[in-house]
Computed example of a mutant assay.
Amino acid sequence: MPLEVTGLKEMADKIKKIEAVMKSTRISEMALQAAAEILRDEVKRRAPRSKGGGKHAADRIIISAVVEGRIAVGFVPDDWYMKYHEWGTSKMKANPFFEPSFNAKQTEIQQAIMNVYVRELKKL
């Protein structure tokens, strides 16, 4: 008795669609943007604020455009001095906030990326 297999063509078509989603630049940029927003919000929450009540670097965190599959979260160029808070100097103790923000939200960031792909795959 011969074995009959059906649905292979449909399965191959579905795999091609999944591959297209996984290789899509637009979708990867959406995933990076979602991840960057989570990191930005956490850095904003943890960044040091001046006691004077003026402008705070924490309120001026930016997310770059996606370039070559990378996205950056950081401060506007005028706030270049924030790196000294993160790393310290010979006369100032480090008060890291950026790396701890990433470490604290790493799981949530990964989940956000996965959620974008899952949402797009469900559209198939």
Rank of each mutant, 00 (worst) to 15 (best):
M1V: 04
P2V: 06
L3E: 14
L3R: 02
V5I: 15
V5G: 05
T6Q: 14
L8D: 10
K9R: 05
K9T: 07
K9G: 09
E10N: 06
M11W: 09
M11E: 11
A12T: 12
A12D: 14
D13K: 04
D13A: 13
D13G: 08
K16S: 11
K16Q: 11
K16C: 02
K17E: 14
K17T: 14
I18W: 11
I18D: 07
E19Y: 05
E19K: 01
A20K: 09
A20V: 06
V21L: 12
K23E: 15
K23V: 06
S24Q: 10
T25L: 10
T25N: 12
I27Q: 03
S28Q: 13
S28G: 08
L32Q: 05
Q33G: 10
Q33S: 13
A34P: 02
A35M: 15
A35D: 09
A36Q: 02
E37A: 07
E37H: 08
I38F: 14
L39D: 01
L39N: 01
R40A: 11
R40F: 02
D41W: 01
V43S: 00
V43K: 00
K44Y: 06
R45M: 05
A47M: 03
R49D: 12
S50P: 04
K51W: 13
K51G: 07
G52P: 00
G52H: 08
G53F: 04
G54Y: 14
K55A: 13
H56G: 05
A58P: 02
A58F: 04
R60M: 13
R60S: 12
A65G: 08
V66I: 13
V66N: 02
V67Y: 04
I71P: 01
V73A: 09
V73M: 06
V73T: 05
V73E: 07
G74H: 03
G74W: 02
G74T: 07
G74M: 10
F75W: 12
P77M: 03
P77E: 11
D78H: 11
D78K: 04
W80I: 15
K83G: 06
H85E: 11
W87Q: 01
G88N: 02
G88Y: 06
S90H: 11
K91H: 12
M92G: 00
K93G: 04
N95R: 07
F97N: 03
E99A: 10
E99L: 14
P100H: 03
S101C: 10
S101P: 13
F102D: 03
F102Y: 12
N103F: 12
N103L: 15
N103V: 09
K105C: 09
K105M: 15
K105E: 15
K105D: 13
T107I: 08
E108G: 11
I109E: 04
A112K: 04
M114I: 07
M114E: 11
M114G: 05
M114V: 09
E120A: 12
L121P: 00
L124S: 04
L124G: 05
